[in-house]
Nucleic acid binder design. Sequence first.
DNA 1: CATGAATGAGGTTTCATTCAT
DNA 2: GATGAATGAAACCTCATTCAT
Lengths: 213, 213, 213, 213
Amino acid sequence: MAAPTPGRAAGTSEARHGAGTKSERTRERIVDATARALNARGYAGARLSDIAEIAEVQAPAIYYYFSSRDELIEEAVSVGLARTMELMSEALAQVPDGTPPMNRIRVAVAAHLNTLLTHSDHAAAAIRTVPQLPKEMRERQFDAQRAYLAIWRALLDDARTSGDLAQDIDVRAALMVVLGALNWTVEWWDPERGSLETVITTAQTLIEHGLAA
Amino acid sequence: MAAPTPGRAAGTSEARHGAGTKSERTRERIVDATARALNARGYAGARLSDIAEIAEVQAPAIYYYFSSRDELIEEAVSVGLARTMELMSEALAQVPDGTPPMNRIRVAVAAHLNTLLTHSDHAAAAIRTVPQLPKEMRERQFDAQRAYLAIWRALLDDARTSGDLAQDIDVRAALMVVLGALNWTVEWWDPERGSLETVITTAQTLIEHGLAA
Amino acid sequence: MAAPTPGRAAGTSEARHGAGTKSERTRERIVDATARALNARGYAGARLSDIAEIAEVQAPAIYYYFSSRDELIEEAVSVGLARTMELMSEALAQVPDGTPPMNRIRVAVAAHLNTLLTHSDHAAAAIRTVPQLPKEMRERQFDAQRAYLAIWRALLDDARTSGDLAQDIDVRAALMVVLGALNWTVEWWDPERGSLETVITTAQTLIEHGLAA
Amino acid sequence: MAAPTPGRAAGTSEARHGAGTKSERTRERIVDATARALNARGYAGARLSDIAEIAEVQAPAIYYYFSSRDELIEEAVSVGLARTMELMSEALAQVPDGTPPMNRIRVAVAAHLNTLLTHSDHAAAAIRTVPQLPKEMRERQFDAQRAYLAIWRALLDDARTSGDLAQDIDVRAALMVVLGALNWTVEWWDPERGSLETVITTAQTLIEHGLAA
DNA sequence: CATGAATGAGGTTTCATTCAT
DNA sequence: GATGAATGAAACCTCATTCAT
């Protein structure tokens, strides 16, 4: 169900090896192509003909797998949100018990940026496209978004409980400010002008110090 | 063929009060409407018919003032960047000489958020739309963007010079992370769910602590 | 609102002289063209490109007047039913009071056939197309159909009351059989192989004798 | 390239009992489904996917039996005409020699209506669809139609010869008017609102009296 | 004998744009 | 200074048809 972006380092879960029947692979190519088109042109600008070209099929072939443009786009966004969630969960699962909250937040920052900037066109597409979606579609993705926010919220709440978070900070606002800093990287980071490590380290430092008591 | 574009006073404050001839006011309504449409649907999704409806004119009327959709959009974006710059300059101009760099940064944060979230659809449109623009158009706005970035860059450089900035921070990356945090507020801030003050204060705190030595 | 079929003998009511603004005339041409296309190919087969060609406009021009293919088709059918009704009313209005029921039925037969076979593409289109329409559209034309049937029904009821109608006849069934005989003429009558007068006379004779006591 | 069309027993009565190999039965289901689709949506509106669904096969399976949509439709229409002819012949064959012409016409009326309204989707499809067919296809069915018309024509000619037919009637026109009355029943008869007997009796009475001297 | 997968042709519809008024 | 009317280009989508399996 989850699809690799060809020519990119694949993630770790077995579902992402491009295996499966030819039909499954074609479907995956189409969803992948959609994510790329959404990144390049946004919701209104992503044309089926572009998507078809990227996926190396004829445009009507898309209708063999999806019954409308919107259904396809929704699938791509939905996969993106799921991917983001999944990679975040994996990253946090590997953190040893007893790790201080601030360190877990650093892990989360790195995971989010890695997902967004290198692991998944889908994740970037989802995050950047959601605000442009028609209301009904956006609402249908609401739960997935909320679940992801809840993970972050728990991280900040832990920090507050343990006294590591500055007392005067509004947790909700702080969370959104932090996520904004991370999400916006998609708009400016250029792998040729600065390393991903620099971005991650800078974000981690700023966020940790910014939040700390 | 080129339309008269009377009194292109865009960006000067008097132009913002609906003054001038009827023609000037219509032109302004169209540019304002464009900013709103860009915010609502992005570059590809902003239709001339939408814009016309918001501006309360018929679509062909737009061609009296602009020779193409792209020219209009570019004007709206350009006005937005100018507005952002202008409001930032005004804010910083009011800061007394000798104010410590970090405090000036706090002022800049407040000015940016005020502009974005309450003073100007154009600013928000410009900032959110620029990444979606066709390459040539984006490049033509490059100088304006760079000038704005330069203001911020100077603020951070001052902080570094005065030793107020953490030593291990990459200034360029830090600046983009900070601006991302601010720009993304447009996507989530809802005046009915939290005060603007909270957003500004939270952002100021996070950023100041995040950057501080 | 009512449109003439160019090149055909126009009806009598002033609304049908092709007058009006240029816009009204274009709209009429489109509705007329639709009636012709419906006659030629039926509901599913009538293509907008055909209609546009007959009306001598480009296909998208149709959308200036109608918001969808179905809306246009419904208008054409609706005009056809109205035309049928109108011509029938005019014909019956000219029959002197005191005319025996059977003679009025003869007038109605002639009126129906005249409308169908020479006065109006719309009438023929309406009658032949209605059974093919999507359910919702068909139901919306139900009232108009019923009103027309009611006129006929009244004619037959009068005949029954005056004892001119054979006693053993089921009025509803007889009415439908009669109308079927008339409506089907569209499928076979060829002006080059037999005169309209022959058709009308034959139908009148058959129907009068068929119904008579 | 041409598909084997095994056992084209269409029109013979045993073929109508679902006998034969599985292949023959599938072919029959497809032709039956086509007749139904033609009745429901007409020539242009009958989609292969509809037909396939009714026949409970996948659309490409149709190409095993027919080499194109038109060939299939032509077959369905052709079967319909043959069926009509066949049932009429059977009915008339059972009429004792020496039966007066008018009584034979009553038998024909009953046979035609029975065929159309209860015995065969194909007959209804053929009769209603023929006028919509592309010219070449229609012409290919011309002989079958003419043969059927000839039967009716002979019935009327007999009546004229024997003096039972009104002298002033044009036989050709009268025949078409009569058949129209019968054919149109498909458009309005609803088994739930009136019995078939009523329809048949009414038609017989009207037609007999209508034609009689 | 039948299907899953895909395609080419062509349909309806949208939209920026033009032009006479 | 603005609009009603219309168009060309191109979008989404449907459908008959093909082909490997």
